[in-house]
Structures are given as C-alpha cells and as structure tokens.
C-alpha cells in the first residue's frame, strides 16, 4: 500500500485540529489533507444538516470548518468609519438662565487633550490628567467659575457635528451637574445617548461630562480650568469612542 493511500485512509479518522496539523507536515501531506472531501467529513460529523446540500455554504468545507469549529475569539475592532478630524463638539453650560460657557470645540482639540496647569490643581486630578489612560479633555480659556450653592442649577448641553456628512447628533441634552466631587475637584453630569434606530438592541449608554476645577477656590465658586468627556460605560479607547459616535442618531 502506497503512503498516499495510507494517508487517505487515516485522514478521515482524525479530528479537525489534527488534520490541520497534518497539513503543516510537508508538501505531500498538505496536498492530500487539503482535499475538501476530508473536510466535508469533518463538517458532516459536526453539522450533518449543512452537508445535505450539494455544495458547501462557503467556498470550501475546509473554510467552513476552519471558521466555525470553535467559538470566535473577540476580534479587534475594525478601523472606525469616522475620525476626530470629521467631528466638532458644541458645548453650552448654563447656571439657571445665565450662559457661562459656549464653545465649538474641534474633535482634534478634544482628542489631543492638555496638560494640567502647573499649580493649583489637586494631586488626584493631576495624576488623572497625566496618566496614560485614554481621555478626551480640553482646556477652558479663559477660565470661568460656577456657583456651588445648593440652589444653583448648572446644566450642560453637548451636540456633535460631522463635517463629512453635515449631520448633527445630540450627546447631552440639558443635564444637570448634580454631583460635585470635592476630593477630586470635578463636577459630573451625564445623559443617555440617542443611538441610531439601525442599532435597536443596544442598552442605555451614557455620555459623561466633567468640569475640572482648581483646588484653591472659594466655597461658593468653583474655578473651572478644563472639561472632560467620556463614555466609560462602554468605550475606553479612541477606536471604541469613534465607533460609538458613529452609531449615534445623526440627523
């Protein structure tokens, strides 16, 4: 019996992983083992119903088996379809009816971030700003103050525009800065994102915005030197953020 015939008799008895290993032994074994008949046998053992049709669902049974024989590992994200250069963020902050801050911030500015001021920033906040973790921040120039009294309603709205399609989406719709962290000198607001109807099964995803303020301030006023935005419920890298923004309900 020639070695080729021996291999053809043995290969159908192997598991798929072992047959794949045989393909790496030498050219002769590879030529025999890549015969789709063997892989049809593998698929017939695993998914008998698929092999009832005359032709494989994919180009070859080998491709079908290779693709689906084990659970897919979490794949790396494909490159986002938009970039920060395409985006512009419109941020308005109000105390009651008084406009405190109103600015259009380009995506590239938000993306590039900033270093914290040399002095006057608490250690916790400085450590956070200078850490290597991904964050979207920009400096506030000139700085503004917000009242910290119990009866003051400080709210924020954030819209985002796309230069590539001339469309706009809402990120935060008049939410209150209702939680002030005096140990890390931040005021936080959030809102739930309006995701495109094209993604109907996504759960509530929040956008967060933080006002970063100086350590030495009066008890009544907080001196804001920077603003941070994030989507930490689901997106913690540049690519994830861009994918999330792409999924907004653009109008």
């Amino acid at each position: 019996m020639e070695s080729e015939e021996v291999l053809k008799a043995v290969f159908p008895l192997l598991e798929g992983v072992d047959l794949a290993s045989c393909m790496a032994v030498c050219k002769q074994w590879n030529d025999i083992a890549k015969d789709d008949f063997f892989w049809k046998c593998m698929c017939a053992n695993r998914w008998p119903s698929i092999c009832k049709r005359p032709n494989p669902l994919t180009e070859t049974y080998y491709k079908l088996y290779k693709t689906f024989h084990k659970r897919q590992q979490r794949r790396t994200l494909l490159p986002p379809r938009i970039s920060f250069d395409d985006l512009e963020f419109f941020i308005d902050i109000w105390a009651e009816d008084i406009l405190l801050f109103s600015e259009a911030v380009s995506g590239s500015v938000l993306q590039s971030g900033f270093r914290s001021p040399a002095s006057g920033v608490c250690d916790l906040l400085k450590y956070h700003l200078e850490s290597s973790e991904y964050k979207m921040t920009f400096p506030v120039e000139p700085r503004f103050t917000i009242p910290s009294g119990q009866n003051q309603n400080v709210s924020v709205s954030v819209m985002v525009g796309r230069k590539d399609t001339n469309k706009v989406a809402c990120i935060i719709n008049k939410s209150m800065f209702d939680y002030i962290e005096r140990s890390s000198y931040r005021a936080l607001a959030y809102d739930y994102l309006d995701i495109s109807p094209g993604y109907p099964f996504l759960p509530g995803i929040r956008a967060w915005i933080s006002l970063l303020f100086m350590e030495e301030g009066s008890e009544d006023l907080m001196d804001v030197f920077g603003i941070q935005m994030d989507f930490c419920d689901v997106a913690n890298s540049k690519e994830e953020v861009l994918w999330l923004l792409d999924m907004l309900d653009w109008k």
């Binding site: 916790l124 910290s148 009294g149 119990q150 003051q152 309603n153 400080v154 209150m176 800065f177 209702d178 939680y179 002030i180 962290e181 005096r182 140990s183 005021a187 350590e215 008890e219």
Partner: peptide, 18 residues
C-alpha cells in the same frame, strides 16, 4: 482619610433627590 482631610465635604448641587 483623604476625604476627611479634603477642604470641603463632597456636596450635591441642583436637585437633591438622588
């Protein structure tokens, strides 16, 4: 300890219902 040393206690602004 860090929080107790903080100059101000954390506080809520706006509506306090949360």
């Amino acid at each position: 300890e860090a929080a107790m040393k903080s100059v101000f206690g954390s506080q809520k602004v706006g509506c306090g219902s949360l």
